[in-house]
């Protein structure tokens, strides 16, 4: 199905930049961050200080004022689900990647990469779409992709994290 509203509002997105046969229904139940972090959910993710019960956000991370949300807060939220910052959005076997879009450093949108290399985006309250590349979704509404994160698709931690975990265990043992 062609998503005309999304094409209207994402000025660089043309009908051939996304898979018209595979889009979701429109819903406000989840948003782009929720969809990038955990997939289809019953709650949107945002560090909103209003309606705290309605917006999911890790409890140890701060709720922030509108339009003053920080990229670091978003990165830490993704880290709670095993993501780590990486340098690019190139497809890598066994690795799931996420792209965060910002305007003036403030996060506006996120997209997640599927195993095929295609990206999925939940566009606000509209549908989620599969777009073949990231640039068509960049523009005045979502800004530009400025940060990539990745995690292993099998759910296991990266080698670096495992080594750090061992070091921390040893530290605790010797500190006793």
């Amino acid at each position: 199905m062609r998503c005309l509203e999304i094409e209207d509002f994402l000025e660089n997105l043309g009908p051939h930049d996304y898979d018209q046969e595979d889009t979701s229904p429109q819903t406000e139940e989840y948003n782009c961050i929720a969809y990038a972090i955990v997939g289809v959910t019953k709650k949107p993710w945002w560090p909103s200080a209003r309606w705290k019960n309605d917006y999911e956000w890790p409890s140890h991370l701060p709720r922030e004022e509108y339009l003053k949300e920080t990229l670091d807060n978003f990165i830490q939220a993704f880290e709670t689900k095993g993501y780590r910052v990486c340098s690019n959005g190139k497809l890598k076997k066994g690795i799931e990647k996420v792209a965060i879009y910002t305007i003036a450093g403030v996060p506006k949108h996120a997209a997640r990469q599927l195993e095929t290399g295609v990206w999925v985006s939940k566009c606000g309250d509209y549908e989620d779409i599969k777009h073949y590349t990231l640039p068509p979704t960049e523009g005045k509404n979502y800004g530009k992709v400025t940060t990539f994160l990745h995690r292993r698709r099998d759910g296991k931690p990266f080698l670096k994290d495992r080594i750090l975990s061992i070091i921390n265990k040893l530290r605790r043992k010797f500190l006793r």
Partner: peptide, 9 residues
């Protein structure tokens, strides 16, 4: 405004 996930936007 429905294109945005950001409430502030």
């Amino acid at each position: 405004s429905s294109i945005h996930s950001s409430p502030g936007e």
